[in-house]
Structures are given as structure tokens and as C-alpha cells.
Design a protein around this nucleic acid. Structure first.
Lengths: 292, 292
DNA sequence: ATATGCAATCATTTTACATGATATCTTTTT
DNA sequence: AAAAAGATATCATGTAAAATGATTGCATAT
């Protein structure tokens, strides 16, 4: 019993006539006769009384609601897939710990408001793990900091460029004094920290001490309390600096520029849910260009 | 998109592999590949990522639940039809006014208790209309009084034989006196009335007056109040006669025998619901034999 | 009694499905 | 780095099921 058998069965049942059903379906009458007889043989039961027309037997009446529902579902399924203007389904996004706290909540919130039918999921993990999941199609895309991923299957898009500054308590006189204090930083592997170390190296500053914090607010509070110094997005501390709660020092752009990328598999199916997500990213950020 | 396409799609989605799905379905690998590609072409969308295995795309994930449900319903439908030991569905029974009030409620009640999953429907109307509905498969069967229906498509079965008696008030001396009173009878067309008239004719009694009642209890009350006489099943008045509330007179069996038949179309599909109904009738009545 | 409307039958064509062998690509093993 | 293993894609070919067109036969209506 296949769905087309049920389509023919339904037509005959509703029309009460093989001839009319055949016209409706665009078949020739003899074919409809054959299909119905075949269905009756397969189900080992009579579905119609033939009385100069076709009248459902009690068994046929049992089958009809199933036929109607199954055909309706087939129709629904077709619509659900082809109705691709309306973003629906699941959208699995990943993010490195470094990016999740700042722009991402805004982007997700705005996207969810615009497209509430999409089930958003956010996975926060290390960049390596994010890349693995993208290569295995477990994520539709991810926000990461570092670029150039070797793998040809990954396409990346710059979505945000931030300026990192060295921050310290207001009393600090100069950069070198600041650098003698402990650095309140994220755990190893954070790209900001890699940049920082490169600069410190270039300046010939060694003997650096770290204190590990994985929360930006804690870090800022710690710096204001003169627990140590840090290296954070300028935008995140602007309001504290204007109030005189801390002091910031700029370092050369090749070290201070932090780039956020949206990466995805080059073969990801561009669903409307994903397309609209990328649109949302772009609308929130002045920068965007395709790399690789 | 037909159900077999979905069956193949489901297997590939669940196995994550065309090769395994093919083994499971008893197909050769290349066929499964072709079916999936064809389905993707028909739906104009990609359903799987190919990464040394098959991984559902977001669109594929949308389709899967439909496929699962549709295939489940097909299975259900098949079971519902072949599970013919268990009476279910609708059973449309008809009855002439004459029979509906006595044995029928008992039969229906007993049947419903035994097979509560059958939707019983009872249509009370004239014998002619009952026969029309049976010939057009609008009723699965009907209880009627008169026999021999000319139409070859109707089969009949005797289910009940009753003895009709002439009843009158206790003071009535003999049959002829009784017959001078008005007859309280059902409307024209009632087979009992036909029998009665045949006997009266044979006895040479004319000038009969009728009063029409379509309720047996009213008739009996009327007779006890000496409003007139009547011609009713002996079983219905037995308890009144033993109390001396009325008197009954027998007439020859060729006129007094009232037969109830269960008739149906010879081509009615013998569902288990109908078979069990006929069993119930037979168990309630000592008489049963196939006629015609 | 005749004509009409409808389903059944059957020989034939057409289409879609299934197969088997082979190519191609990816991942794992050596 | 090379080879083997494991997976899907492609293609020519075979096969079975579906669809057609013409005709027959039955039941209803005029």
C-alpha cells in the first residue's frame, strides 16, 4: 500500500465513481479500475460495492480517514520544505568563550525577535571543538576570534573588529609600571592573550604573572580594585574610564586589533534561517567581507 | 514524493549510511543513492550532507518527522483493516416500526455490551425504504416482518416467530362479538393487519372499523378500557390475561403467525462486526434458517 | 426496448525502478 | 606517503509495474 494507491482510493471514494476519479486525477479509467482492484487484492478485502458507481464498504470507510490524513501530511511536508521564505527549523550556532559575552547576546536576541519560529541553539566551546563540529555539520556556523583555519572547507567572514587596550587602576603612571602587575586574563588559548604576549615580547617585557578569570566583569572589577591589569576591548571599559575609575593605554594596532569571524562549512545548506542570521550579523556590524 | 521515497529516506537518515540503509531495505546501494538524489531533485533541496556517510541537513531534519509519522500511519491503516477478528467500525441496522419495540432493544443492548467498539446505528422506517437502503448499501441489514421480496439481491433469515391473538375486554363473549368493535391497529402496511384482514375475509366478516395507534402499550390499554379490540403478539399480553384484565381468542396459524426476518444484501461485506451481530441474533432466538 | 452511463478486461506501450559493474572520494592503516 | 578500506556517485542494462486505448458487459434510465 503506497501513497499513490491511497490518492486514487480517496478520489474514487469521494467521487463515488471511477470515471470521475480518473478525470480528476488525469488518468484513464481502466488504470483507476486496475489500481483499486490491486489495492483490494493487496489488502485482501473489498473496499467498494459496485452498484453502477462505487460505494464504500464498511472496511473502505475504515480506510478513508487514514488515506485522508496520510495525503494531508504528504502535502504538509512538501509545503514545510518548500516554504523556504519563512525561516523555520533549528539553527545551531557555536561561539568561542571569548566572543559569547559581548555582541552575541544582542545578535541572538534581535534574530529571535525577528524569526521566532527558528529554534536557536548556542554551543560555547573551544575554537578547535567548534571547527570539528562545523566540519562534521553539527553546527551551522560559529563565532571565533582567530582566523586562517587551514581547512579549505571552512569559509570565514569578518563580522567585528575591536580595539583592545591595556587597562590599569587610575593611579598607574605608565605602561611599563602597569605591566609589572599581574595580568587578569582568560585561560590559555584565548587569542587576546596571544596578541598580548607577542607585544610584551617585542617590548622585551618578561616575567609576566597571570591571574585567570573567565568573566569580563570580574576582570574589570579586579582592575579597578588595583588587583592587577588587563587587556580588554576598548568599548567594554569606556564608561569606566570617563568616570575616572580606571586608566587605559593603547598599544600598536597589529597587536591591539581583535577580529571576530563567523565561520561555517563551505557546503552548509543555505537555509533561509541561516541566510537571515547572516543578514542579522551584517546589519549589526559595519564590517563585513568574505575571506578565504 | 511517494511513501516509498520516504521509507528509503527514513532508513538513510536513521542509519546515517546509504550502504546500511540499502542492506536493511533489501536494495542494492546504487538504487538507494538514486532514490535519494531523485527525492532531493523533486523537492529542490538538499537533504543530506555527504561526508563519508550521510548527515541530515536542517531541511532533512524538517522532513524526517513527517516521514516517520506518515510511515507509521500506513502501518496503522494496514493493521486496522487486517485486524478483522476484533469487530470495529460502523454497523448500520434498520428496523420496521413493527419490530423495533420488542426484541430489538435487547439484541442491540447485548451486542453493544459484547462489542463496544462498534458504532451501532438504528434507522426505523417503512419496509420499502429499508429495502431501498439495503439495495443501495446504506444499511448493513434490517429487521422486517413480511417475507419474499422479489429482489434476488436480498437474502433473508428468519429470526423470530410470534403467535398473534385477537384480544378484547374480559366481558366479551365470543370472537364474532369482538369483531364488531373497532380494531385498534397500526397504520396501513403493517403486516399484522394484512394477516388479520385475510382471516376476517375468510370468515365473511366485513364492515370493519379501525382506530390507528402506533404504540403497542396504548393499544393494550385501549382494549382493557373496552375502547375496541386488537390483534397483537401473545407474549405481549400474557401477563394481563392471567390477571383477568383482558381476554384473548386464537385464530388459525396461517393467519396468526407473525415472522420477523433479518434481511441484507447478498453482496454485503461480511465484516466481523456484522458476523457477530448475526451470531447475537441467532443466540437470542430459537429459530433460524436461511431462506431464498 | 433501446440508449446511456459506468466498470471490467486485455493487449500494448511507456515509465520508473532495480541491478551490477565501475569510478571517485574520504578516512584509516601500514 | 602510500596503500587499503569504506563510502557514495555514475552509467548501461534489465525488469516489473503503471498507464493507455479499444472493447466488452452490466445496470439504470427513458
Amino acid at each position: 500500500m503506497e501513497s499513490n494507491d491511497l490518492r486514487i482510493f480517496r478520489a474514487v471514494a469521494l467521487e463515488g465513481s471511477i470515471t470521475k476519479a480518473a478525470q480528476m486525477l488525469g488518468y484513464v479509467q481502466s488504470n483507476v479500475t486496475a489500481r483499486i482492484k490491486q489495492l483490494e487484492a493487496e489488502l485482501k478485502t473489498q473496499l467498494f460495492y459496485r452498484k453502477h458507481g462505487m460505494i464504500l464498504t464498511p472496511t473502505g470507510e475504515k480506510l478513508l480517514p487514514y488515506a485522508v490524513q496520510i495525503l494531508h501530511l504528504l502535502d504538509e511536508a512538501h509545503k514545510a520544505l518548500n516554504d523556504s521564505d519563512k525561516p523555520t527549523g533549528r539553527l545551531a550556532i557555536g561561539a568561542n568563550h571569548t566572543v559569547s559575552s559581548l555582541q552575541l547576546p544582542q545578535i541572538l536576541s534581535e534574530y529571535h525577535k525577528a524569526y521566532p519560529d527558528v529554534d536557536l541553539s548556542l554551543t560555547t566551546s573551544s575554537t578547535d571543538e567548534l571547527i570539528y563540529k562545523i566540519l562534521h555539520f553539527q553546527l551551522d556556523g560559529a563565532f571565533v576570534k582567530s582566523s586562517s583555519f587551514i581547512d579549505d572547507n571552512i569559509v570565514e567572514e569578518l563580522v567585528y573588529e575591536e580595539n583592545l587596550v591595556l587597562i590599569s587602576s587610575p593611579e598607574t603612571d605608565d605602561i611599563r609600571t602597569a605591566c609589572s602587575k599581574p595580568f587578569l586574563m582568560n585561560t590559555i588559548g584565548c587569542p587576546n592573550r596571544v596578541n598580548l604576549e607577542q607585544w610584551l615580547n617585542a617590548e622585551g617585557i618578561n616575567n609576566i604573572r597571570y591571574m585567570e578569570f573567565n568573566n569580563l566583569d570580574f576582570i574589570i572589577e579586579g582592575v579597578m580594585a588595583d588587583l592587577g591589569v588587563s587587556f580588554v576591548p576598548q568599548s567594554a571599559i569606556q564608561r569606566y574610564e570617563t568616570k575616572g575609575l580606571l586608566k587605559s593605554f593603547s598599544i600598536p594596532p597589529q597587536y591591539s586589533t581583535s577580529k571576530t569571524f563567523f565561520i561555517r562549512h563551505q557546503d552548509t545548506l543555505m537555509t533561509s534561517a541561516l541566510a537571515k542570521f547572516i543578514e542579522t550579523i551584517e546589519s549589526k556590524t559595519p564590517y563585513h567581507q568574505i575571506a578565504h
